[in-house]
Amino acid sequence: MNFKEELKRFKPSMEVDEIEDAVMKMDLTDMNDIMFQMMEKTVSEKTAVKDPKEEPLQ
C-alpha cells in the first residue's frame, strides 16, 4: 500500500459551519426534473417561430 497516495484520496469532513453553503449548492435534480426539461426543450423547438430577419432576402 502506498500510504501517501492512499491518504490523498481522503477529503476533509464537511464542517458544521459549511452546512448553509452546502445546502444552497446541493444539486437536487432528479430524473423527473431531467425528463421534464427534455420535454420542455422538445416542445419549445417544435413550436419556435423563426425570426423573419434571419431569412434570406428574396
Partner: peptide, 17 residues
C-alpha cells in the same frame, strides 16, 4: 458514521422539501 454536518444537510433539505 460521525459525519454530522452531512447528516444535518440531508435533514434540512428533507424538511424544506
Amino acid at each position: 458514521m460521525g459525519e454530522t454536518a452531512d447528516a444535518l444537510c440531508q435533514w434540512i433539505i428533507s424538511e424544506n422539501l
